[in-house]
Simulated scan of single mutants.
Amino acid sequence: MEFKGIYVPLVTPFAADGAVALDALEKLAHEVLDAGAAGLVALGTTGEPAALTAAERDAVVDVAAAACAARGAQLVVGATGGDTRATAEALAALGARVPQAAAALVTVPSFVRPGEAGTVAHFRALAAGSPLPLLVYHIPYRTGQELSTAALRELAAIDGVVGVKYATGGLDGTAAELLADTPEGFAFLTGEDAFLAPMLALGAAGGILASAHLATGRFVELAQAWQAGDVDRARALGHRLTGLALAAFAAPNPAVTKGVLHAQGRIPTPDVRLPLLPAGRAEVEAAAALASGLDR
């Protein structure tokens, strides 16, 4: 299965009473898919999965799965445990619940910093028993574990590992090396919204982008422009979307994005769950203005 284009890691909307607003989540899922997103990511970091109960996580996955099935889109689901055994159990449960999922998004082991060899061994063990293909989520500023180009190539060679969500804070040498000679069948998807344009220019397959909630069609247009070789259109649109992406991350994700979605009337509240706090008014207004300006 090919992973290409823009994937939206869904926020989890909350109602005024604090419950998950599943009706708003369903509407949002259909909106971004109708705007051209290749698929949805349920229970990614943007969805605040650590703050959800097990029942809430299951409900979120069910809504996303139904939306993807209705639109013929790809479903990716976050599945990470505290160690290899717990992650394997989470993958088994996920495969039983949504066997139609295109992949599971699995974070590089966090906090323990097992080294590159340990990280490769972790994914090799997971892939051997996983009912779903694996997308490696490489985000060292959250996990504490750096990976070299050589280690990423080792991961790409594992049967069942189909790609990487690459989020290292910017465009670095490792990304450039990997994109210069990307292993066959291994999708490089950026997770750094503000660096989508240069990553696409270097050959990235697409991105998993929280800010794509706010202008899904424009992000899709950008990806298509680079893939078509329309450099002038891609460069101009890329500059504008970079500004929106930076504004969307002016407070810890997904606070600004939720604030804008609420201001647009697309979710019932801007609420996040502790330890996150809602974004400030100025941050939300700045991002909302940039999103609105993209329609002109």
Rank of each mutant, 00 (worst) to 15 (best):
W226T: 06
W226Y: 10
W226I: 02
W226R: 00
Q227K: 13
Q227W: 10
Q227P: 06
Q227R: 15
A228V: 03
A228E: 10
A228H: 06
G229P: 10
G229M: 04
D230F: 03
V231W: 11
D232A: 15
D232P: 12
R233A: 15
A234N: 03
R235H: 13
R235A: 13
A236C: 11
A236P: 14
A236E: 15
A236L: 14
A236D: 15
A236Q: 15
L237C: 06
L237G: 08
G238F: 04
G238V: 08
G238H: 10
H239Q: 15
H239G: 13
H239V: 14
H239Y: 12
R240W: 02
R240I: 02
L241G: 11
T242W: 09
T242F: 08
T242L: 09
T242R: 14
T242C: 08
G243M: 11
G243T: 02
L244F: 09
A245C: 09
A245M: 09
L246E: 05
L246C: 05
L246R: 12
L246D: 05
A247P: 02
A247N: 07
A248D: 06
A248R: 03
F249K: 03
A250V: 03
A251F: 01
A251G: 01
A251T: 01
A251R: 14
A251V: 02
P252M: 07
P252Y: 06
N253C: 05
N253I: 03
N253H: 04
N253T: 12
A255M: 03
A255Y: 02
V256Q: 12
V256T: 10
T257H: 10
T257Q: 05
V260Q: 05
V260E: 07
H262L: 08
H262E: 15
H262W: 11
A263L: 14
Q264E: 13
G265Y: 09
G265L: 07
R266Y: 06
I267S: 01
I267D: 06
P268R: 04
P268C: 04
P268N: 02
T269N: 05
D271N: 11
D271H: 12
D271I: 00
D271Y: 08
V272R: 02
V272G: 07
R273W: 10
R273F: 12
L274M: 13
P275S: 11
P275Y: 08
L276D: 07
L277A: 15
L277I: 11
P278G: 13
P278H: 06
P278A: 15
A279W: 14
A279S: 12
A279F: 12
G280H: 11
G280M: 09
R281N: 10
R281D: 14
R281E: 15
R281V: 13
A282F: 12
A282N: 10
A282K: 09
E283D: 14
E283W: 06
E283M: 12
V284I: 11
V284T: 03
V284Q: 09
E285A: 15
E285C: 06
E285F: 07
A286R: 10
A287V: 01
A287M: 02
A287G: 00
A288P: 02
A289K: 04
A289E: 07
L290Y: 00
L290E: 00
L290T: 01
A291I: 04
A291S: 01
S292T: 08
S292E: 10
S292C: 00
S292D: 04
G293Q: 00
G293K: 00
L294E: 00
D295Q: 04
D295N: 01
D295P: 00
